[in-house]
Amino acid sequence: MLITTRPAIFNDIPVLQQLIAESVCRLSKGYYTETQIESSIKYIFGVDTQLLIDETYYVAETGNQIIACGGWSKRETLYGGDQHKAVADPLLDPATDAARIRAFFVHPDWARQGIGKMMINLCEAEAIKNGFKAMELGATLPGEPLYRAMGYKSLAKILVDMANGEQLDVIKMRKEL
């Protein structure tokens, strides 16, 4: 089947929120507890509308079905949807800062079929066009193998505190472009 990509639009948000929740619920099993998974959907993972405004967030679709989403950012935030941040992100300087890979989620029925790689390649190419020479990201434990396969190196393990007292392991990673 033909898979295409396009910039995400605000009308996509309800479908994206559903996709993100399903992706996290099913692909995080065995990496995080059920409570961590439920809490992360509520407090961390979701659409970051700043990426839509910046036109740096994409969907992958086949036919009219959105099967994945992800993007890159020229802003400071490393991870998390709108519910995870309180203020607008300052812009990064491409001469000194790394762009961000952000909010990658693949529908579980389409996982491990090269869609994530395709979208990372798109995001890296767009970041290079915008003058960036490196990328950073906050990887979930199930996402880390994909990023490692794409040449990202682990920098640090981050414990993200959630409002209900739960914590989520995230791996800060970087790649020189």
Rank of each mutant, 00 (worst) to 15 (best):
A156C: 11
H84C: 12
Y32F: 06
A111Q: 11
L51T: 00
A21W: 00
I115D: 09
V15M: 10
T35L: 08
M118T: 09
F10Y: 10
M162F: 11
S23A: 13
F10Q: 10
M162H: 07
A149V: 05
V24E: 05
I115K: 08
I3W: 14
K157S: 11
V106P: 09
I158M: 13
D97E: 03
I44V: 05
G30N: 03
M1G: 15
F105L: 07
M1K: 13
T49Y: 02
L16F: 00
G131M: 04
Q113V: 01
L177A: 11
E38P: 01
K117M: 02
E76A: 15
M173C: 05
G114M: 08
S28H: 09
V24M: 06
W110P: 08
Y58D: 00
A149M: 09
K29M: 11
L92D: 07
A125Q: 14
V106M: 07
C25H: 11
T4Q: 15
M119S: 02
R102H: 01
T49M: 04
I171N: 02
V87K: 08
L159T: 03
R102Y: 02
E38S: 05
D93M: 08
G71A: 12
V170I: 13
I20L: 10
N130L: 05
E22M: 08
E126G: 02
